[in-house]
Amino acid sequence: MPLLASFLNPLDNTHNFEPDKHIPDLADKVIIVTGGNSGCGKETVLQLAKHNPGRIYLAARSQAKFDDAIKEISTAAPDANITFLELDLSSLASVKQAAEKVVSENSRCDLLINNAGIMAHPPGLTADGYELQFGTNHMGHALLTRLLLPTMQRTASQPDSDVRIVNVSSAGHMFVTGPGIYFDQLKTPMESTNPGVIYAQSKLANILHARELAKRYPEILTTSAHPGRVESNLANVMFDVNGFNGRFQRVFDSLAGQFTVQQGALTQLWAATWKRDEVKNGAYYVPAGKENAGSKKSRDAELAKKLWEWTESELSAKGY
C-alpha cells in the first residue's frame, strides 16, 4: 500500500460497518440506485440485494448495461427482485419518464441513492442546455428526487418507515473556485474553465442539495457521501484526454492508492442502512461513515438556498 494512502485516501471505518452483517432486512422496501450498472453503484445494488428488498430499481442508460451488471448481482443474490430502470441523467425527459415508471408501479419509495455521475468531461451541454457535468450530476438527480418526493413523503408518514436519500458527492468538491457555483455560466459549456473545477462545482451542488433537502423535508433522512478514490471507470474520460487533470490524477493514485469498489461503496451503504438515530440529517460523510465538515462553501446556507431556488425555477420553467 502506498505510504501516503492513509493520508490522501483514508478509510476510517468508524462503525466497523460490514454490509453482510449490518444491513438490516429490507423486506417490502422500494429502492432506486442510479448508475447501478458499474462501479460503486453496482456494488451497492449487489449488497442491498442480499437483504430481501421488496424491489430494487437498477437505473442505467441502456438495457445492455443492465444485462451486463445483473449477471454478477444475480449470482450473489439470485432471488432478489431487481428491475431495469432506463435513465439518462443528461436528459430531463428521460428522468421524468423514469420517475413516472417508479411512481406508477409502486405505492411507496423508501431509498433513493443518487450515485451516478460523470467526471472531468470535455466541454459540452446536456440535452436541456446545461453544462454537461452540472446538468448530469446535479440537475438530473435534482429532478429525479423532486418527482419522487411526494411518494417518499407518503412513505415517511407510515408507521415504522425509514425513508432516506443519499447523494454521492466527492472530496473533489473542495476544488471549487470563486463563488463555488457559477450561476451565470451554468447554461454554457464553460470552455474556459478547467474541467476538474467544473466537476468540483457539480459535486458541491450534490452536498448543498442534500443539506437543503434535509432542511425542507426533515421527515426524510438525507445525507451526502464521498466514496473515496475508487478503482472504477469514472476517471476514464479524463485519462483518455490526458490533459493536466488526467496526469495529476495518475500521480495522486500512485501516491494514495485506490479503493476497491467494495470499499468505495461502504459509505453510501452505511448512510443508506445504518441505525437511523446515528446518522445525521444533512451531514456529509467520508469513508466509511465518518462525518466531515466539508469545504466552507459546502456549509454555506445562503449558497444552498440560492442553488435550491435556482434549480426549482429552472425545472419549473421547463415544465417539471
Score class of each variant (00 low, 15 high):
208 L>S: 08
175 F>I: 00
211 R>P: 02
200 A>D: 05
222 T>N: 03
222 T>Q: 06
227 P>E: 09
210 A>T: 10
178 G>T: 00
230 V>E: 05
183 F>N: 08
193 T>Y: 04
209 H>K: 08
205 A>G: 13
214 A>H: 02
207 I>L: 12
182 Y>N: 14
229 R>K: 00
200 A>G: 10
211 R>G: 06
180 G>T: 05
188 T>S: 15
207 I>H: 04
229 R>E: 02
206 N>Y: 00
208 L>N: 05
220 I>C: 12
184 D>W: 00
229 R>N: 09
226 H>R: 06
184 D>S: 15
188 T>W: 01
224 S>K: 00
196 G>V: 12
179 P>C: 08
201 Q>G: 13
221 L>G: 10
178 G>K: 07
216 R>K: 13
172 G>Y: 02
180 G>A: 14
198 I>P: 04
194 N>I: 05
173 H>M: 09
185 Q>Y: 05
219 E>S: 15
226 H>C: 10
226 H>D: 11
202 S>M: 09
187 K>W: 01
228 G>I: 07
228 G>N: 05
173 H>I: 13
205 A>N: 04
202 S>H: 07
195 P>Q: 13
204 L>W: 07
174 M>H: 12
217 Y>E: 14
176 V>I: 15
175 F>L: 14
223 T>Y: 01
224 S>F: 03
218 P>L: 09
229 R>P: 00
217 Y>S: 13
200 A>Q: 07
208 L>T: 08
203 K>P: 06
194 N>Q: 09
213 L>G: 12
200 A>P: 08
186 L>Y: 03
204 L>E: 06
195 P>G: 12
182 Y>K: 13
216 R>I: 12
209 H>S: 14
179 P>G: 10
197 V>D: 02
191 E>N: 11
194 N>M: 07
173 H>A: 11
180 G>E: 03
224 S>T: 09
179 P>I: 04
215 K>A: 14
201 Q>F: 07
189 P>M: 14
201 Q>L: 08
207 I>V: 15
202 S>E: 11
198 I>S: 02
197 V>R: 01
230 V>C: 11
201 Q>R: 01
177 T>P: 03
203 K>S: 10
196 G>K: 00
176 V>G: 04
185 Q>A: 15
219 E>L: 14
189 P>F: 08
214 A>E: 07
230 V>K: 02
206 N>L: 11
192 S>P: 04
229 R>M: 15
183 F>R: 00
229 R>H: 12
179 P>L: 07
205 A>S: 14
172 G>R: 00
230 V>G: 08
230 V>N: 06
